[in-house]
Simulated scan of single mutants.
Amino acid sequence: MKPRVLASMFALGAALSVSQPALSAGNDVSDGHRYFIRYCASCHGLDGLGDGPVAKSLSTPPTSLRKLGDKYGVPLPAHRMAEMIDGRDTPRAHGTREMPVWGERLYELGQGERGEYGIGEVIGKIIAYLNTIQDRRMAVR
């Protein structure tokens, strides 16, 4: 990924996280939303639709994260989601690994803690948030 695009993503994430209303601490979904805004929204959009401000500069459009449940079921399989977020399994659509692989940074934020299935605390919270934004018209497994 081009350094200028990556720098823009960090700047946008920082600005968005500051401008968001404070969410209740201690709630995994609220914490996950905060991390999502900081690390994911610049590409995937504030609502997870794949329409973030950086999306237009990417050769492959970001995925709509609201439709993950269509493919993987609800609740989302935490281990599978973690593999995509931390880079163990970069989606083919990203080809040249255009998607930033946040694993190292997110595990660092969680003080290196890895819970069930090797999922870090921060990634687990992002997944908890992603579960709340799935299109509810799909079948829940």
Rank of each mutant, 00 (worst) to 15 (best):
S64M: 07
D28H: 05
A15N: 03
A139G: 05
P75I: 04
L109G: 02
I127N: 09
L23R: 12
V18P: 00
M138S: 09
G120M: 07
E98Y: 13
I37Q: 12
H94C: 13
M84E: 08
G50K: 05
G103F: 04
G112P: 15
Y39K: 01
Y72K: 12
A11M: 01
Y107A: 11
S17D: 07
M138F: 09
G103V: 08
Y39C: 02
A15W: 01
H44D: 03
D47P: 00
L130E: 07
G95R: 15
K71N: 09
R114G: 11
S59T: 12
Q134E: 10
D70H: 13
K71P: 00
A93V: 14
M84D: 00
H33Y: 14
T60H: 12
E121Q: 12
G110A: 12
G95F: 08
D28Y: 04
E83A: 13
V140S: 11
E113W: 15
R88S: 11
N131K: 09
P91I: 10
S42G: 09
L16C: 04
A14N: 11
Y39G: 00
E108Y: 15
F36N: 03
P77Y: 06
Q111P: 01
E108W: 14
I119Y: 12
V18K: 10
I126W: 07
A22F: 02
G95T: 12
L106V: 06
G95Q: 14
L58A: 09
C43M: 03
V101D: 14
S19D: 09
A14L: 07
G87C: 01
A41W: 05
F10D: 07
T60V: 14
R66P: 00
V5W: 01
S24K: 13
E116D: 15
A7S: 11
R97H: 12
A15D: 05
L16V: 11
E113Q: 15
L76D: 03
G26K: 05
T60M: 05
G52A: 08
Y117A: 14
E104Y: 09
S17Y: 08
S59C: 01
G45V: 06
S30G: 10
L58I: 10
D70Q: 07
A41F: 03
P61S: 09
L6P: 01
V140E: 12
E121N: 10
V18Q: 13
L6Y: 02
L58R: 11
E121Y: 04
Q134G: 02
K125Q: 15
N131H: 08
A55W: 01
K2L: 01
L68N: 03
R137Q: 10
P3E: 11
C43L: 02
P75E: 07
G112N: 15
F10T: 06
V74R: 07
D28R: 08
E98R: 12
E83S: 10
A22W: 00
A41Q: 02
Q111E: 15
L58S: 04
